[in-house]
Every structure is written in C-alpha cells, then in structure tokens.
C-alpha cells in the first residue's frame, strides 16, 4: 500500500510517496475528465456528505462533482444555515451525521483543528476541505498536480508564494507539500501578514516582491481577504497593490517561463493585475480548477479503498 492514511486532514502527515501516488492517480482522472465518458466506479454505492461550516462555491462544487463522477451518492449541507445556529455543538452534528453511515465526510470549518476533532468522533474517512488557517490539503495537491503537469517535475523548482501568508491555510499546506518534495520555497508579503516563527520552516522570507520573485519558476498568489484590507494589517488596498500586487513589471523579475497561480476567487486589481490573470501563456488558474476535480477524485478513491480494507479486516476479526 502506497497510500496508508485513513483521513486526509492535512499535508503534514503525508509521506512524499503518498503524495506521488495520489498525484499519479489524479493525472489519470485529469485525462478522463477531458474525454467523453467522465464516469468511474470507484465510489459506487458509497455515501459522501459535504459539510461546509463556511462559505464556499468552488471547493464545494469541485468535491460534489468529484464524488458524482466516481459514482457516490453525494449530499451537500451548508451548515451555516442549519442546526449549528441553534446551538448544536460540532460533535453533536458529527454524531448525527455519523448515524447516517456516510463513507466519506468532506468538512470545511472556520476554526483550525476542528476537522481533526471531528475525525476522532466518526467512523468514516474524513477529508479536510479547509480548517481555519491550518490546512487545505486538496488545494495544495491540485496546485502540485498543476505544477507537475506544466513544469514536468515537482522538485528543485523555485517557487514564490505571495500575499497574506499569516491567514492562509492554502499557504500552509503548499509550504508543507512543496518542502516535502524538495523545492526552494520563498514567501513574499508585508511583515504584518507573515506568521511568527516562519524562519524555522525551511523557507526564505522576502518583504520586497521583486527580490522575492527573482528566478522564480512558479509565482503563487494568495487571496487577500477583504476584512484584512483596511488599516488592520495593511494601510490600504491601493498601497498593497502598489507594493505586492502582481503586475507585468514585477513578474518580469521571475523566470521568462514562470507560471502564475491563484487559488481563487481573485481580487483583480488588489493582489493580481487582470491582464496577467488572463494571460494564457502565463496563468494556469483555469487548469488549477480542472485539476481540483481530478485530485479530489483520487483522494476519495484512495481513502475509500483504505476504508473498505479496514472494514473487511474488522469484519474478519483481524486487527491491524
């Protein structure tokens, strides 16, 4: 077995071999997605519940489509409008859903660690679709697949991650994944948006964007949350764009064939110039969305396989 985990809670516990296994499988699903028959059967008869305690359009749609393409029964619950508002605790909600015997539980939650807590209480496979500012593993995996397909490899690349690192789960998962695959990772952003102790992570930190982008193969932009724009962490939107927005002049510091990535949704004119986002020679943002479905199909297939193996072992009385 080259993918051994019961849940996909983050990149942190994954072994590089597991990451490669998952990406290889996702590669095949990416090809399948471009074909006429997009259907697989890996999740036939299984139930997938998506629990989103936080707003999401793209991730939710991507997980839903991934499950449906593999034959699962998919239910999506927007927990902001449900009983959570009536004071039910996270654990109670989880136990209620657990009683419906789901096989795959996809969870997004505004608090770091909430998905880990939930995974302890249910007996199905749990996928983290983003928890607070902790991790967003499928995003990092889809970014990795996009890089691998465009650059032909996923190691010894010079990668700049720019923007609000401090509040970004996407950045955390990407730093972990790209580090595990032995890339040179550079963080670029104003000091108020760089987390404390980051120098211990094996990354380089740049406050000047041109310096940070120098020699980059990949430029990964992060979304700046609206609520952080005014006065709290940065002086203003326009000053941020001037110093940290990706425009042609700053991008020229990177390698000539550098690709531009963004997890979406974009704030055009805040962290990224519209023409760069739309430049098909540079921007791989649309491909990222495409890879998202493939990566989630692969992740769910691998977890479902481990789950059924564990259930068979339990049924036959063999303990691991």
């Amino acid at each position: 077995m080259t993918f051994t985990k019961r849940h996909l809670l983050g990149i942190e516990p994954l072994h590089p071999v597991e990451i490669t296994t998952l990406l290889d499988l996702a590669d095949r699903y990416a090809e399948m997605g471009r074909g006429v028959a997009k259907h697989g059967h890996a999740l036939d008869g299984l139930t997938q519940i998506n629990m989103f305690f936080e707003n999401s359009t793209r991730t939710q749609a991507s997980f839903e489509l991934a499950g449906k393409r593999l034959g699962a029964d998919v239910m999506t619950m927007s927990m902001q409008t449900s009983s959570v508002k009536k004071g039910e605790t996270l654990i109670d909600t989880a136990l209620t859903l657990n009683a419906m015997h789901p096989d795959l539980l996809v969870v997004r939650h505004p608090h770091s660690g909430a998905v880990n807590l939930l995974a302890e209480k249910v007996n199905c496979a749990v996928l983290n679709a983003g928890d607070g500012r902790h991790e967003h593993p499928t995003q990092a995996l889809l970014d990795a697949l996009t890089i691998r397909r465009t650059k032909g490899r996923l190691h010894r690349l010079n990668i700049a991650i720019c923007g609000d690192i401090a509040h970004s789960r996407v950045a955390r998962s990407n730093i972990l994944l790209l580090g595990k695959m032995e890339n040179r990772v550079k963080l670029v952003g104003p000091p108020t948006l760089i987390p404390a102790g980051v120098s211990d992570w094996g990354v380089e930190v740049f406050e000047d964007m041109r310096e940070g982008l120098a020699g980059a193969d990949v430029v990964m932009m992060l979304r700046l949350q609206r609520e952080r724009m005014d006065g709290g962490f940065i002086p203003s939107e326009r000053e941020y764009y001037h110093r940290y927005g990706l425009d042609a002049a700053k991008l020229s510091c990177a390698k000539d064939d550098a690709i531009v990535m963004h997890p979406g949704p974009m704030n055009r004119g805040v962290e990224i110039d519209g023409t760069i986002a739309d430049d098909i020679n540079r921007s791989v943002i649309q491909e990222q969305v495409e890879m998202g479905v493939a990566v989630r199909m692969a992740a769910m297939e691998l977890l479902a396989a481990n789950l059924s193996a564990a259930r068979e072992a339990a049924a036959s009385g063999v303990t691991a």
């Binding site: 942190e12 770091s112 660690g113 928890d131 607070g132 500012r133 902790h134 991790e135 401090a166 789960r169 955390r172 987390p195 404390a196 102790g197 980051v198 211990d200 992570w201």
Partner: peptide
C-alpha cells in the same frame, strides 16, 4: 503563544 508551533497549527497567537 506565537511562534513556529502556533503558525504551523494555524492558531491565533499572542507574542
């Protein structure tokens, strides 16, 4: 407490 651990776990931290 702010530092490497807090940042890795993505938890709000105090200096």
């Amino acid at each position: 407490t702010s530092g490497k651990f807090a940042s890795l776990r993505g938890l709000p931290a105090v200096s």
